[in-house]
Write a protein that binds this DNA or RNA. Sequence first.
DNA 1: TTTAATTCCCACTTATTCAGTAGGATTATA
DNA 2: TATAATCCTACTGAATAAGTGGGAATTAAA
Lengths: 144, 144
Amino acid sequence: MKISTKGRYALRLMLDLATYNTGEPISLKDVAKRQQISDKYLEQIIPSLNRAGYVRSVRGAQGGYLLAKEPKEYTVGMILRLTEGDLAPVNCVGENPVSCDYSENCAVAKVWSRINDAVNQVVDNITLADLLDWQSDYVDQYII
Amino acid sequence: MKISTKGRYALRLMLDLATYNTGEPISLKDVAKRQQISDKYLEQIIPSLNRAGYVRSVRGAQGGYLLAKEPKEYTVGMILRLTEGDLAPVNCVGENPVSCDYSENCAVAKVWSRINDAVNQVVDNITLADLLDWQSDYVDQYII
DNA sequence: TTTAATTCCCACTTATTCAGTAGGATTATA
DNA sequence: TATAATCCTACTGAATAAGTGGGAATTAAA
């Protein structure tokens, strides 16, 4: 039941772009340094965010990435699903369920379905804007 | 974010023992046949349930396993945690969290924590007795 | 116009986990 | 005493995780 580094890093990457946004492109190297993640690995993660239109890339020197939309337009669920795939705990529930011979009278599937709903409920109701808010709360509390 | 076969089979195993309980020990071979799971694999899964005292084993011919307690005494969470380990989506939240350098001002950790709470809320509030109920509902609906 | 910084693309690697199999020792019943 | 069961330990093959490495294409700045 773990979320892989791919999903976790993608979320931190998006949050980093939101946090340090100035209107100028932000290079992966900068993100990697701040987030302490291998830049080569980030390079492997970002194409899916790019293809989905979640970020805009600027090539060449002084290039980098920018969020394509406002932080409040991105839910955590959107970002995680892109990198993790479906968040359902088993294949027989979720976006495109694989039905088995017992699916009709399978009480256990009801458990998976409820877990699925509960997880979606959380990730689809938190946006990058919320994360920005939470960050500034922490700053108020600990640093200033 | 998937639950492995180990956890899923453990739950079906426990539910099978509850469903077909007559007071006599039930052999893994019977469970395996009904649930369409390799008996050798079940043999590998059950020791943890046994050591935890969730089932009682009877050795020798006509031996097998019995639930140690009433179905309502087992939550899905108890069973899954035994076989899957902690259900937390990352290591920095959950039962014994591994703290990182940023844990204090990590907005992302709040997301993981909420997912963790949501999952626990589900699995800790469904018992084997609930699953038995759901099963008989299905029977009413489809078979009878 | 060259240099340097950057994205883009694709192949490779190493370790771990998953999902079982296999074989035999031990125990108890009929 | 034969048989049916649990118990225990080791092995295996495939997939996934978590990166690394090299180089081509693009563009801003010197």
